[in-house]
Design a protein around this nucleic acid. Structure first.
Length: 652
DNA sequence: CTAGGGTTAG
């Protein structure tokens, strides 16, 4: 029973004024039918389950559950509140069921991932004996459900039915059919539908473009795809259609950044063009639709990934509507650009100022910021937060935690997450823990875990192989390294990559097996690059083999004359062997090419404050004391007859 | 009541 006090409680519940008009309409309505309808709409808009249940009771009491409009709204709202069984009860009790009502329930089943139920309902609507015949809405909904489910086989059956019913030529049905094929990984079929469509709208082109981008990414892509993609975009404009928010958000992620050299349309150039397109064409970032917020996210992301996080921030600050996606995109932007302090600040602001709770993606995004400056504590806090939110078994979060913990120095925590929290492991999980062991010099453990992974039938990918090989290399496990290398090449038919080969060269080299390293280089299935020669160079210097050193050096400078690290490494190595003439020569060569070395940095966290240091840095307030202590330590080291090997300490 | 999208991990 709706009482006045309940109504005023509802009124107090509203924060937004736009809901008030609906409320007044409801309160002022004399006709019980209209009043009930308003109440139902109100419960849907305010996401109030309580109100909805009251509306439900009222409908029962007034005997209005058979009314088609009321019934439809009841079914819709039950589905909104994730109560598909209730929706089903309302549906079953109806003596007359129109197509609208059937479609509403069908869509509700889809939203609750009830594939079998939706398939059954669709089947009943197909023969048209008891339930009304499937219409254009039915097919759109069904294509979406099949797309979610991912079985193209079912999609083709639905399509066959829609051909029979003469509905494939409908634009919206065609668009959803295209999208279904996209999501089931059948781009060719998607293209075919597009070609055969009698009438296309912006969404048809969007579906085509986003399907094309997806194929592009999955196939590892090449420039052919890239040009074809631009043809599509031009084709759309030739058709007299303008980009909408969806088009722009599909294209933005391809503008530079992480998309990789081949996949990106070009550097930031097109990104800026798209940005100005947004403003010239009045696409509203503050629109009440989600598409506006989404556009903002994509822009922030695009600028951050192209190193212009400040531009991203300006866009972010101007957004009137921020949600967890926008906040996360901004935080991620700062993390991406290495501005961890600002990222952590925003992570707190998001919750403090906007009351937006982080989701699992936000946590994954902020974790790398913890793995450096904030130290172990930050990682543990995030972990604790995840446990409280019951997110700690999420795959991506576990993977990120494993990595963070091992980078913060806590192999124990990393192992615990890997073994106890990461229930479903993927290639990244294995790779993270293997690299963790490698990083901590526990080569044997890395090898054991890697072997265990192979035993459990998981196919190793490039990253985990590089991880285990580099672990072997650091721990001097030459036999394991060779065994693993041979296994993956012969048993798994994986083509060795540059990284894998560098590890092998490094491994032979460190143990002084320089000729073996050189022979390995000659046997590689591709031309040796800078990292290969760099590894050999380092090793030959380490073992004082000047002959091999010169071989490596010459090859290195030849193929990579612009990389300052080469010169620094070289200059340091010659300095170590006191060949000062060559040092001066190398440094001069660098200056002539205008190269500068980006300095490395170390840091330490004490009582939650982080102190960072560059080479020769005197900016720390306690700098004088620190250097005095350093001198004392060096003296102490010499006194104990420990002869530090500066070859290992040199800045490369 | 219908189609299309977002931020994340080695």
């Amino acid at each position: 029973m709706i009482t006045l006090s309940k109504i005023s409680a509802v009124r107090n519940h509203f924060r937004a004024t736009q809901k008030a008009s609906l409320f007044h309409a409801f309160a002022a309505e004399a006709d019980p039918l209209i009043s009930l309808l308003r109440l139902l709409e109100l419960s849907i808009e305010t996401h109030s389950l309580k109100l909805n249940l009251q509306a439900h009771a009222r409908a029962q009491r007034l005997g209005l559950t058979q009314h088609s409009l009321i019934a439809q709204k009841l079914i819709f709202s039950c589905c909104q509140f994730k109560r598909p069984i209730d929706a089903q009860l309302v549906f079953d009790s109806l003596s007359v069921k129109n197509a609208h009502i059937c479609n509403t329930l069908l869509s509700g089943y889809g939203k609750s991932q009830l594939f079998i139920e939706s398939w059954e309902l669709f089947r009943e609507m197909s023969n048209g004996s008891v339930l009304p015949l499937a219409d254009d809405f039915t097919f759109s909904i069904m294509f979406k459900i099949v797309g979610d489910f991912g079985e193209v086989f079912h999609g083709r059956m639905v399509q066959g039915r829609s051909v029979k019913n003469g509905l494939v030529s409908d634009t919206v049905v065609g668009n959803s059919l295209m999208s279904m094929y996209d999501r089931c990984g059948c781009f060719d079929d998607c293209l075919k539908v597009f070609d055969e469509m009698p009438l296309r709208n912006v969404s048809s082109w969007n579906a085509l473009i986003s399907g094309y981008v997806k194929v592009n990414v999955e196939n590892g892509n090449n420039s052919f795809y890239k040009y074809r993609l631009w043809d599509l975009v031009k084709g759309m404009q030739n058709d007299g259609l303008k980009f909408d928010a969806f088009t722009v958000s599909t294209l933005l992620p391809l503008c530079g950044g992480d998309a990789g050299v081949d996949n990106c349309i070009d550097k930031c150039g097109h990104g800026r063009e798209l940005h100005s397109y947004i403003f010239k064409n009045g696409l509203d970032l503050n629109s009440s639709l989600d598409s506006g917020v989404h556009l903002g996210c994509c822009l922030i992301d695009m600028y951050s990934k192209n190193g212009k996080v400040d531009v991203g921030r300006k866009i972010f600050d101007r957004l009137k509507r921020k949600n967890v996606f926008t906040w996360t995109a901004m935080i991620n932007g700062y993390v991406h650009c290495g501005e961890f302090d600002e990222a952590l600040f925003l992570f707190r602001e998001m919750q403090r100022r906007d009351g937006v709770g982080p989701n699992k993606v936000s946590l994954v995004a902020i974790l790398p910021a913890c793995s450096s400056f904030a130290g172990l504590l930050g990682g543990k806090q995030i972990h604790g937060f995840a446990v409280r939110r019951e997110l700690n078994h999420e795959l991506s979060l576990c993977n990120s935690l494993i990595d963070t913990y091992s980078k913060c120095g806590s192999l124990n925590y990393a192992t615990q997450v890997f073994e106890h929290e990461c229930i479903h492991k993927d290639a990244i999980s294995w790779s993270s823990i293997v690299s963790g062991y490698g990083l901590h010099g526990q080569g044997q453990r890395a090898v054991n875990v890697f072997d265990k992974m192979l035993q459990s039938g998981i196919k190793p990918d490039t990253s985990v192989i590089v991880g285990v090989l580099s672990a072997c290399c650091k721990s001097g496990l030459i036999n394991d390294g060779m065994r693993i290398y041979d296994t993956i090449v012969s048993n798994y038919e994986i083509k060795p990559t540059v990284e894998m080969c560098s590890c092998m060269v490094d491994m032979f080299g460190r143990l002084g097996e320089l000729n073996r390293a050189h022979d390995f280089i000659k046997s590689m299935p591709f031309e040796p690059g800078p990292s290969i020669w760099g590894a050999l160079l380092c090793a030959s210097a380490m073992h004082g083999n000047t002959e091999m050193q010169d071989v490596a050096y010459k090859s290195l400078i030849e193929i990579e004359p612009e990389n300052s690290s080469n010169y620094i490494a070289l200059s340091n190595l010659y300095a170590a062997s006191k060949r000062w003439d060559v040092v001066a020569q190398v440094r001069k060569g660098m200056r002539e090419r205008g190269l500068k070395k980006v300095p490395g940095c170390s840091w330490i966290s004490i009582n939650s404050a982080t102190h960072s240091f560059f080479v020769g840095d005197k900016s720390h307030p306690c700098s004088d004391l620190i250097y005095v202590m350093l001198d004392e330590l060096v003296s102490a080291m010499k006194l104990t007859c420990y002869n530090p090997d500066f070859v290992y300490l040199m800045e490369v």
